[in-house]
Design a protein around this nucleic acid. Sequence first.
DNA 1: GAGATTTCTTGACAAGTGTCAAACAAAGTC
DNA 2: GACTTTGTTTGACACTTGTCAAGAAATCTC
Lengths: 211, 211
Amino acid sequence: MIAVASAAEERPARVSGIDKIERRRVALAESALKTLGELGYARTSLREIANNSEFTHGVVHYYFRDKIDLISYCVRYYKTKCARRYDEVVETATSADELATGFLGKMTQTLVEETPMHKLWYDLRAQSMFEEQLRPDVEAIDQLLEEMIWRILSRYADLTGTTPTVDAPTAYALIDGLFEQAVVGYAANPEKVPDLLTGRLLQVLPKLVAA
Amino acid sequence: MIAVASAAEERPARVSGIDKIERRRVALAESALKTLGELGYARTSLREIANNSEFTHGVVHYYFRDKIDLISYCVRYYKTKCARRYDEVVETATSADELATGFLGKMTQTLVEETPMHKLWYDLRAQSMFEEQLRPDVEAIDQLLEEMIWRILSRYADLTGTTPTVDAPTAYALIDGLFEQAVVGYAANPEKVPDLLTGRLLQVLPKLVAA
DNA sequence: GAGATTTCTTGACAAGTGTCAAACAAAGTC
DNA sequence: GACTTTGTTTGACACTTGTCAAGAAATCTC
């Protein structure tokens, strides 16, 4: 998606050029994501993004065709960071308890440390209902997240000697429902919400598997 | 909230005046909700709302202080319509099966027939993460919906001779997760999503109660 | 029906938006 | 070192936004 692979076949001089473009794009996307995470999709303008970066608003338009192109790029860039968050836990855990605590730990950690990102994600998913151009990217991320949850639940079932009793989309919707509730509630109750989320997930997880 | 109660104490002539104001407000809110449901919060302007109504954009400002005031009123008005949707089913059902099918029937029905409303709700809830002024209204609705889900689950437990195994916020987050997934996916797959939702809820409901 | 009040229309405003293009600077090429 | 390509700045454009105010129209009051 972010197209680095195919560039490797061209001559070195050119590669570094494309690489530099890609670097700028990434820098702009990271800056844009910060602003988007704080203000939300609706209130973020290209000028605001440029102001909160080291570039001018013309540069934004130089590297991205238009606003949707930028946002879309941001979303795709974002996904590369989020969907592999629990992989290490899944791979290293040797017991169901270890997996559960590791998973919940990482989840509350990202909830607290990357709140703006998660707010933005739920915002963008809502926007995708109205803005068709966002839909493919949002669908792709949703798919990735679903697979992520499924890997966790499968492993959890393995470690408990059980099998999942719901399919992947259902498991994702349930757990995502709890997480979204936590993200929305976090602003009002930053100190209590992480523990509530942990407790609720601990209640729910065992119900999603059975011998 | 929508202030009719206190008006009753004034002299009759005045009451009908206030009543008329309230009627206009409701008419404007209903029109605004239609536009909001189609375009989403971000892309809906006061002029667009006025254009899609029988009034001019000046009237909007005459009856509502500003944009947030209007949206906020819309949200509160909306909530009065949505949170009692399943009450009849809950009250008349005499068996768990009857309750489940009645509940699922009404849920898929509103999913299909009032899609814009539900899209708007998830949009506004996302917006409330960025716009503090929306938060109280959104929280109030969330509370109402949670209670609605809890009434259903309690009754379901009663009819099956069991008790819920999760608390109200958890039950709401889980079921709402499934419903939101359905709303988001409905645009892409209008014919399959309702049945998928039904199947998933049928899988999940029994897991939320136990003897 | 005259006069006062409420309701509505119209047009304007300041501010902000996405987009673009022309001028300018930097880097790379021969 | 001249010339082309690439990157950046700046300022402008057409347009939309929320807000408001002055006045017309409708309604009510006596």
